[in-house]
Amino acid sequence: MIWWHAVLIAIAGVWAGMINTVVGSGTLVTFPVLVALGYPPVTATTSNAIGLAPGSVSGAIGYRHELRGHGRVLLSFLPASVIGAVVGTILLLSLPPDAFETIVPVLIVLALVLVLVQPKVSAWVTRRRQRAGVDGADGGSMSAKGAVGLVAAIFLIGIYGGYFTAAQGVMLMAVMGILMTLPLQTLNGIKNVLSAAVNIVAGTIYAFVAPISWPVVALLAVGSVIGGQLGAKIGRKLPPRVLRAVIVVVGAAAAVQLVVQQL
């Protein structure tokens, strides 16, 4: 590996770690870099999944304070993310490379719309619960149908994350923000844990059955861990409106970039 390639990959890893922690679209930094440097798309995808997993864990640890008292919520969501990640890795290894990526821009645009309308929807849900006399002290309770719908959405996002990983954080923030009324920073912490689970599961499978560039993995791992901690410090200090704006900007950039890649 040429030295400047290594420097560029490491820098991309730091930036991806920061973005993944704050909102989730870090793959859209590292994936184009790896492809531009000559790595095959599948190798770039699988190496990303493994290399960025430590950064996802680092970012999740950075949000540990916001996650206190929400262990049961995480445990109820993790199986859906894990199983979805397994399905996504199977799709990547068995379907044509372009089969899933063609609908990714549509999914990201949908997620951005959900992020934009989330405050009004959450306020409406809160008013409805108050009129019904529902205790919303924990800020995250929902109906049985809402819980089933949320778990199903997390499962589908896990499939997507296991296949390509880019912008899964945007989608998680969108669906959780609409169906739950927890503070945005707490949702961001939950998003980081679920994204980390998807990356770990997918990366573990890829390590055994998919083409991997281990030097790339090592560089991304070191960079993303550093970026994950930086992102946690930045993200935790952002007010909800600013954090939501970051989500929309990064998500829109992701959609545009993926459309351009399809042309």
Rank of each mutant, 00 (worst) to 15 (best):
residue 1 M to T: 15
residue 1 M to G: 15
residue 1 M to V: 13
residue 2 I to Q: 15
residue 2 I to M: 15
residue 6 A to N: 14
residue 14 V to A: 04
residue 18 M to L: 15
residue 18 M to I: 13
residue 21 T to Q: 02
residue 25 S to M: 14
residue 31 F to V: 05
residue 32 P to Q: 08
residue 33 V to S: 04
residue 33 V to E: 06
residue 34 L to K: 06
residue 38 G to F: 10
residue 41 P to H: 03
residue 41 P to I: 04
residue 41 P to N: 00
residue 43 T to Y: 05
residue 43 T to R: 06
residue 44 A to K: 01
residue 45 T to A: 10
residue 46 T to D: 01
residue 47 S to L: 05
residue 47 S to A: 10
residue 48 N to H: 06
residue 49 A to D: 00
residue 51 G to M: 04
residue 53 A to R: 05
residue 53 A to L: 02
residue 55 G to N: 07
residue 55 G to H: 05
residue 56 S to R: 01
residue 58 S to I: 04
residue 60 A to Y: 05
residue 61 I to P: 06
residue 63 Y to W: 10
residue 64 R to W: 11
residue 66 E to N: 09
residue 68 R to Q: 15
residue 72 R to G: 15
residue 76 S to M: 13
residue 81 S to R: 08
residue 83 I to Q: 07
residue 88 G to D: 00
residue 88 G to Q: 03
residue 88 G to V: 01
residue 90 I to W: 08
residue 91 L to H: 03
residue 91 L to Q: 01
residue 93 L to W: 02
residue 93 L to I: 02
residue 96 P to D: 14
residue 98 D to P: 05
residue 102 T to Q: 11
residue 102 T to M: 08
residue 102 T to C: 02
residue 103 I to Y: 08
residue 103 I to T: 06
residue 105 P to L: 04
residue 109 V to Y: 07
residue 109 V to M: 12
residue 113 V to W: 10
residue 114 L to R: 04
residue 114 L to P: 02
residue 114 L to Y: 00
residue 116 L to H: 13
residue 117 V to Y: 03
residue 119 P to Y: 06
residue 120 K to N: 11
residue 120 K to M: 13
residue 132 A to I: 10
residue 135 D to R: 15
residue 139 G to F: 10
residue 140 G to H: 10
residue 145 K to A: 14
residue 148 V to Y: 12
residue 150 L to D: 02
residue 152 A to Y: 07
residue 154 I to R: 07
residue 156 L to C: 09
residue 156 L to M: 06
residue 156 L to Q: 00
residue 158 G to W: 01
residue 158 G to R: 04
residue 160 Y to G: 01
residue 160 Y to A: 00
residue 162 G to L: 04
residue 166 A to R: 00
residue 169 G to Q: 06
residue 169 G to L: 03
residue 171 M to G: 01
residue 176 M to S: 09
residue 176 M to D: 02
residue 177 G to D: 00
residue 179 L to Y: 08
residue 185 Q to R: 12
residue 187 L to Q: 11
residue 188 N to S: 12
residue 188 N to F: 09
residue 189 G to S: 09
residue 196 A to Q: 07
residue 196 A to L: 07
residue 196 A to H: 09
residue 197 A to Y: 02
residue 198 V to C: 01
residue 199 N to V: 00
residue 201 V to C: 06
residue 202 A to Q: 00
residue 203 G to H: 01
residue 203 G to I: 02
residue 210 A to W: 02
residue 211 P to N: 09
residue 212 I to R: 11
residue 213 S to Y: 12
residue 215 P to L: 13
residue 217 V to K: 07
residue 219 L to N: 09
residue 221 A to C: 04
residue 224 S to A: 12
residue 224 S to K: 02
residue 230 L to F: 14
residue 233 K to P: 01
residue 243 L to P: 03
residue 243 L to I: 05
residue 243 L to Q: 08
residue 245 A to I: 15
residue 250 V to W: 09
residue 251 G to Q: 08
residue 252 A to K: 08
residue 255 A to W: 10
residue 256 V to H: 10
residue 257 Q to P: 05
residue 257 Q to R: 15
residue 258 L to V: 11
residue 260 V to S: 10
residue 260 V to Y: 11
residue 262 Q to H: 11
residue 263 L to C: 10
